[in-house]
Design a protein around this nucleic acid. Structure first.
Lengths: 254, 254
DNA sequence: GAGTGGTCTAGACCACCTC
DNA sequence: AGGTGGTCTAGACCACTCG
């Protein structure tokens, strides 16, 4: 008797809290507006701050909120669509490239990358760090790995300034047979996090691109996109004429 | 004097804990092995259980651990690569399709989907739920939305058993101009979570596919992949001959 | 029933930003 | 200096799985 509902599974507080906040965001808040602080919200909903934070964390994960230490929690704009590929037959560093080179070192690649390139685990490769921005803020960082064997024509005496353009120029002299990509979830390493203006451990979408030339993988790019603000788009023949803009809210995030 | 390190930024405990655990996973544990329980681990490392859990959460997000209530925490196998596209010129439900239909309803699509389809917000559309499995476990669920206007030849009197095949058969009679996709991070809704054997709110990769035919978007699929166990792969011309297997550990996930 | 991970609490202190 | 979110603690109870 008396049981008003026959819910087999009692909904966790933070889950219910999340839906309540989502509705409030849709109806009562504008993009960019700042929310009351966490202590205030927690007491207003009658829960502990940790519980409230669990709800906020999920909303941030879904791109609905943006939280910044020392500042506050604001309503996030819709995720921006960033075009990832395929860009048939164009090497990184082409004229229409969306990336900006910010540095370059010659170092051993991570084991997984070395394996894809077929190089030795400790063999130094050209490593170019690049950044991709949209609308004034950085959305991704990338490490592009090019083994020396892929650019045999490269002069040996290069100033750091000349280094990157030279490597890319050598790449462009090669035919590009194709590229393939993999997308997975990761958490931002300290260095990436700093360049993306996020805390270490923030959720990111990791895009690994293999560039194939002459039947071999000649370069590998590992790009790290902010998962909270980005929606990765993959275009295809025929479909591109229809723009993908104006999509205000996505179906399956929550 | 006594400061052994000159770290400007004191590393959070859970962050350090995570790296320690990662090293331990690499060197001292086998895939599938179960770890000591959380209370045990917390006291062993001299931290509160909540702090330990913060580290475990990140490792699970990165696909290194698998936690199951009532069972324990186990070392996860490497993520499986699931091919997503492009599958040029093939509608969902083709013979080589990786999906299994599990249900079908006729209901109003979410606002974002209705917008992409160009249908009214409350207009019912055919909604097919499908599941994708790999290696015996479900890795994704999908909702395929097909507005009635896209399949005008569909008979009106259909038993539920005949419904799905009929809808897909009608689709296949149309030419497919192309498809494009978007990938973003989301959290599993209750229904999806259940079919993926995860808890609600688990991180998922949401793949939205638009099928274009005759200059119009004739169908939209929203697929929800387990982010912890999946790596989405996008193939391309020329590159496919090189297999992408045997990649034991990925570079940028932490 | 025993043991596991999941949720929740009520505090405390810290790092960061802005005024 | 004061306010924000980020980290951390030491508990408690619940939901689930399994023998």
């Amino acid at each position: 008797m008396g049981t008003t509902q026959l819910e087999k599974v009692p909904e966790p507080k933070y889950w219910h809290l999340k839906t309540v906040l989502m509705d409030a965001l849709d109806s009562e808040f504008e993009v960019g507006e700042i929310l009351p602080n966490e202590r205030e919200l927690a007491s207003r909903f009658g829960v502990a701050r940790a519980t409230l934070r669990q709800a906020l964390e999920q909303l941030e994960l879904e791109g609905r909120l943006q939280r910044r230490r020392g500042v506050g929690t604001t309503v996030a704009p819709p995720r921006v669509g960033v075009f990832v590929g395929p860009t048939s037959g164009s090497w990184p560093g082409a004229a229409d490239d969306a990336w900006l080179t910010v540095g370059c070192v010659e170092a051993a690649a991570p084991a997984a990358v070395a394996h894809m390139l077929g190089t030795g685990a400790d063999e130094p490769v050209h490593t170019v760090r690049r950044i991709r921005s949209m609308g004034g803020q950085s959305v991704a960082t990338e490490l592009l790995y090019v083994p020396g064997a892929s650019v045999p024509g490269l002069p040996s005496d290069l100033t750091p300034t000349d280094h990157v353009p030279a490597v890319l120029r050598e790449l462009h002299t090669l035919g590009l047979d194709g590229e393939d990509r993999a997308v997975e979830l990761g958490s931002a390493r300290a260095e990436d996090a700093k360049q993306l203006d996020r805390l270490p451990g923030a959720p990111v979408l990791v895009v690994t691109t293999r560039y194939v030339s002459g039947g071999r993988v000649t370069a590998v790019a590992v790009a790290t996109y902010r998962a909270d603000t980005c929606r990765l788009t993959f275009g295809d023949s025929g479909a591109m004429e229809i723009t993908h803009q104006g999509q205000e809210r996505h179906a399956a995030a929550s």
